[in-house]
Amino acid sequence: MPWMLPTILRNLLSRPVTRRYPFDDVREPFAGYKGRIDFDADRCDLCGDCARVCPSLAIEVTLESRQITYDPFKCIYCATCVEICLPRAIGQDRRYTKPALSKGVETIEVPV
C-alpha cells in the first residue's frame, strides 16, 4: 500500500500539471501539427489531384464552375492532399477545426 504514497504526497505539494485550456498555461500545438486545411485559390490549377487521393472524399473539384468544395466534417486531416498538390495550393494550419452546431461545407472559387 505505501508504494503510491510518495507520488501522492509529491503531487499534493507541487503545482498541478493541468494545462488550463481555455484560460492560461495552454500549450500550443507543435509546428507540424496536422490541423485545418486552407486552400489558396490563386495558386490552384484545378488539376483535381487532391480530390482523387483524398481517402474520405472530402474534396470535390468542379472544372466547369471552377469551384472546390471542401467538407471539414468529412476531412480526416491526413495531409495527403497537401503532399500531392504540385502548385502548393493547399496548406495546413496547426490550429484545429473548431466544433460547430451544424455541419457545412466550404466553397472556394478559383479565379480564371
Binding site: 501522492i8 503531487n11 499534493l12 507541487s14 498541478p16 500539471v17 493541468t18 488550463r20
Partner: peptide, 11 residues
C-alpha cells in the same frame, strides 16, 4: 479537490 491535487490535477 484534494483527491484531484493528489493525482496532479487541478480539480
Amino acid at each position: 479537490r484534494l483527491t484531484a491535487r493528489m493525482q496532479g490535477r487541478w480539480g
